[in-house]
Structure formats: C-alpha cells, structure tokens
C-alpha cells in the first residue's frame, strides 16, 4: 500500500494534533484534577428519606465552603432556592428521586447528569453576586421546561 508524500505529511500533522489535544486533556484531568463529574456514590432512589438526602439543603463546612445536597425530581429541585454569600465555594451533591435529570447552571461549568440511584458532584466558587438560574437540560417529561431552581449569591 503506497502512501503519497503529501499524505504522510497530512497524516503526521493530523495525528500529531490529536495526540497533542489528548495530552492537554489528560494532563488537565490527571495532573490538575479537572475531571468530568464521575462520582461513584449510590443511593436508593425510592427511599431517599432513609439516606443523607432525607433533609436536602445547605450545610456550612467551613468559613466560605458549603455543601448543598439537592434532590432533582419531575419537575423541580428540592430545595427550590439556596442562598450563599459572594465568594463562597459550593459543593453540589445531587441525586434524583425519579427519572434522569441534569443539574446545570448556565454560564458556569456546572453541568452534570443526575441519574436515579447515583449521586453526582460538582464544585463552584461564586465570585459574582446575583441570582443564578439552575435548569434541567435532560428531557424528563411534559413539564421538563419548567424545571428550575435559584441560587441567590448575596453581596
């Protein structure tokens, strides 16, 4: 099988770019810890009241770090609003009590799938005050487009 000289150059350039891209992604992930949300914890979606999600809401972990345990459901989130001061880092732990949802804060990198039986996690530091919209971007039924909650970041 004959490879033309130009084709060799083209493939070396092309495959070289792919290797470079993968290296950037790999270093960012495994050296700097920028991993996609892949939490492995499990819960019984039908009996969330017997789990850590029995009382969803905000817990303060230290001065400017909070943990928000949130339950996604058709068609909303529990709690429907949380409030943190500006500069806070919030660790979101989210699960679903029924079908597949997402937990997405447009304009940030918080965007993860919420599958029943699993807990997914993301972390975000709110450096700007304002009212952040959280929405579901995985189709979850006839009221999917009404599913939302708010994060109030107070100055």
């Amino acid at each position: 099988m004959h490879l033309h000289k130009y084709e060799k150059i083209w493939l070396i350039f092309g495959i070289g770019s792919l290797v470079l891209f993968l290296a950037v992604l790999g270093v960012a992930a495994f050296a700097f810890g920028q991993q996609p949300p892949s939490h492995m914890a499990k819960v019984d979606a039908q009996n969330l009241e017997e789990s850590v999600f029995s009382e969803p809401g905000l817990d303060q972990i230290n001065e400017d770090t909070y943990r928000a345990r949130i339950v996604a459901m058709a068609f909303g989130y529990d709690p429907g609003t949380i409030e943190v001061p500006v500069g806070s880092t919030v660790i979101f732990e989210v699960t679903s009590s029924d079908v597949v949802h997402s937990f997405t804060i447009p304009g940030t990198n918080v965007n993860m799938m919420i599958t029943p039986g699993h807990v997914n996690m993301a972390e975000y530091t709110f450096d700007e005050p304002g009212e952040y919209l959280v929405l579901c971007n995985e189709y979850c039924g006839t009221g999917h487009h009404y599913m939302q909650m708010k994060i109030e970041v107070t100055p």
């Binding site: 993968l22 992604l25 996609p36 949300p37 492995m40 914890a41 993860m112």
Partner: peptide, 17 residues
C-alpha cells in the same frame, strides 16, 4: 456519558482516546 455518575474517569478517558 462524560457528565454521568457511576462511570470512572479512567474508563471515560480510555474511550475519549
């Protein structure tokens, strides 16, 4: 399924490659 819980980062990265 990169944004999904229950699959480890390692296997997601293998399939990314």
């Amino acid at each position: 399924q990169l944004m999904e819980a229950g699959i480890t980062e390692f296997w997601k990265y293998v399939q990314t490659i």
